[in-house]
Simulated scan of single mutants.
Amino acid sequence: MADGHVFAVASDGFHRFSKRLVQEIEVVAGLGVKGDAHEGVTVRHRSRTAVDPTQPNLRQVHLIHAELFEELEAKGFEVGPADLGENVTTIGVNLLALPRHSVLRLGGDVKLEVTGLRNPCAQIENHQPGLLTAVLDRGPNNEVIRKAGIMTVVRAGGVVRPGDTINVELPHSPHLPLERV
């Protein structure tokens, strides 16, 4: 039984904040989305390559839950699939509650391993003023809650399309909470 499904997919070969909606993406094991600016074994995010270009790419595929868009709309923001730079927009999966090393099976072949939370950056604020604050929250112990999606690495590649099912496989216990990557 599916836990959820793919709502939209996006890619962009250039380092822009938002990505381009497409009909399908091809993900490649160990690399990410074929042709995307963030595809690679080593980190591709410009701020991180400036610090250490040899660090592993733990951000090969970025996923955001479509339910976030409704929450943001209620706060006065107009945000849709690919606007926040994600490759895969999901629906029906509580991405932020997943433990590290969970595996998401998309469609029949693709396996993505969850590495952590996306840390929203100032580019979100440039996209729409006030949006950075809107994708951050505070928990009961005043801890920062990041809502801008999760990052994954590709364990098995294939093609991903809107409508594909998503099945979640939890790792063995103990479950490790998501941290920013």
Rank of each mutant, 00 (worst) to 15 (best):
P99I: 08
H45L: 01
G35H: 12
A97T: 01
L31C: 04
D3Q: 06
L136P: 02
E86S: 09
V88P: 01
A66I: 06
V41N: 00
E169A: 12
P140S: 13
I150D: 01
Q23G: 15
E70P: 00
G13N: 15
V43T: 15
N142F: 15
A29T: 07
L95Q: 05
T49R: 15
E86F: 05
I150T: 04
A82F: 05
T152S: 01
L98C: 12
Q23C: 11
F77R: 05
P129F: 04
E78N: 14
F7Q: 11
V168A: 05
G40E: 13
L72Y: 13
R146L: 14
G163M: 08
S173P: 14
D3K: 03
L98M: 13
P53L: 03
R59C: 02
T90Q: 04
V33C: 03
D137G: 02
N119C: 09
V43S: 10
F7V: 13
V110M: 05
I124N: 03
F69V: 10
T165C: 05
E39C: 11
H172L: 15
H15R: 14
N126L: 07
V41G: 00
G35Y: 06
A122D: 06
I91N: 13
E67L: 00
G139C: 05
L178N: 13
K75S: 08
R20C: 08
V103L: 09
H5S: 08
Q128Y: 07
K147R: 15
L21R: 14
P177V: 01
A156G: 04
M1E: 12
E26M: 13
L98E: 10
K147A: 13
F17L: 14
Q123P: 00
T115K: 03
T115F: 02
D12P: 00
V93C: 05
G107T: 10
D137V: 00
L170C: 08
C121K: 07
E143N: 09
V114F: 08
N126D: 13
E67C: 10
V159E: 02
A148I: 10
G76F: 06
V135R: 00
G149L: 14
A82C: 12
R146G: 04
K34D: 09
L63F: 09
G92P: 03
H101R: 12
Q123A: 13
K111S: 12
N87Q: 07
S11T: 15
S173C: 09
V114G: 06
H45D: 09
